[in-house]
Write a protein that binds this DNA or RNA. Structure first.
Lengths: 105, 105
DNA sequence: GCGCCATACCTCGACATTCTATGGCATAGA
DNA sequence: TCTATGCCATAGAATGTCGAGGTATGGCGC
């Protein structure tokens, strides 16, 4: 059974991970893992396509950087990304409220 | 963008809707809609395949009934379905806790 | 200098879930 | 008789996610 663990809210998590400062892909995975208390350990094959998708959608902006002779692509939120984060956050609240209501019906 | 509203937790909702008593497909859709405060209005094309899937997986059992000369397929939880509901409920709690942690990081 | 590991990026194909669209039939009411 | 509603169902497409695989660099031990 797929999607049992993560289930469709990846964009929200990625945007949230970038809220405070720009990060490169690997660091984003790390950030999500650590800030979730090791609950969400996304594979790269999931995260990179998602980052590209968000960038195509104008929610992220990226640029190549060099750290210790190593190339890295740093991602940061655009203005629209900040808006989208706020929207998705309240969508998330409504969603969980709905599920909770059904569970406690 | 698909899945923006529901996102992979349909099984949990369906199992929860059947917690108290058996229901037929249409009534399940109704139950989820009303108990969620009109937040989740699933199309039939989503729910029926999901019910069949859950039945194939042994979490539901169904039988044809006749109500007012109308044939209806009534679904109810099996023992494994009751277990699965409990499991998915705590999975859900862990999942939301993880998301909350990332959002508030 | 060599092998190994962690870091870092990426793409591809497969798969499950969900949605849209469509069909059917029965019954109640206008 | 027509329409709305209740009720079941499937097919096809879209999407997100995952697993697997590929490349490359730097640092470490030996």
């Amino acid at each position: 059974m797929a999607r049992e663990q993560y289930s469709g809210h990846l964009d929200l998590l990625l945007l949230a991970a970038l809220r405070a400062r720009p990060l490169h892909g690997y660091a984003i995975i790390d950030q999500v893992r650590r800030s979730s208390g090791n609950r969400f350990d996304y594979p790269e094959g999931t995260v990179y396509p998602a980052l590209h998708r968000l960038e195509d959608g104008g929610l992220l902006r990226s640029r190549w950087g060099d750290v210790d002779g190593r190339r890295r692509r740093e991602y940061e939120l655009t203005a629209r990304g900040v808006e989208a984060l706020a929207e998705q956050r309240s969508e998330w609240d409504r969603f969980t409220a709905g599920v909770r209501a059904v569970l406690e019906q």
